[in-house]
């Protein structure tokens, strides 16, 4: 499923990386521990997290993740946005908490087991 479709269906607000919304999302990963994401996420995953500092962009680019969704109404820090634009990493925000964002993605067929 394309990232743009997810943005529509979940009513997410895009904060960066608009040019990459046509990319495919092939799985999902939810975690707030960077070490965990580095170790266990897969290329093409959409990452759901509460973390907003700029390290998230580095982690997401390294693992070639499809995009980052910030939950609970969190906004990316300024440095995070700059880094995201540089790396062309889509960052989206929502008021929903992790549990529901994941639930809705799961219903769209995005899986967490790979």
């Amino acid at each position: 499923m394309k990232l743009s479709e997810i943005v529509d269906r979940l009513d997410l607000s895009v904060r960066s990386g608009k040019e990459k919304l046509g990319e495919d999302v092939t799985g999902g990963y939810a975690s707030d521990l960077l070490s965990d994401v580095i170790a266990n996420s897969n290329e093409g995953d959409i990452w759901i997290t509460l973390q907003i500092h700029q390290n998230i962009v580095a982690v997401a680019s390294m693992n070639k993740l499809a995009g980052i969704v910030l939950v609970n109404g969190r906004e990316p820090e300024e440095g995070t946005l700059e880094a995201a634009e540089q790396e062309a990493m889509p960052i989206m925000v929502t008021d929903m908490p992790t549990f529901e964002v994941v639930g809705k993605l799961y219903e769209l067929g995005i899986s967490g087991t790979r």
Binding site: G28, Y29, A30, S31, N40, I48, T98, F99, E100, V102, G103, K104, L105, Y106, E107, I110, S111, G112, T113
Partner: peptide, 13 residues
């Protein structure tokens, strides 16, 4: 044994 994503997804559905 499920990861966070899978666990939340299963319970939600």
């Amino acid at each position: 044994r499920f990861r966070m994503f899978e666990a939340c997804g299963r319970l939600y559905t």
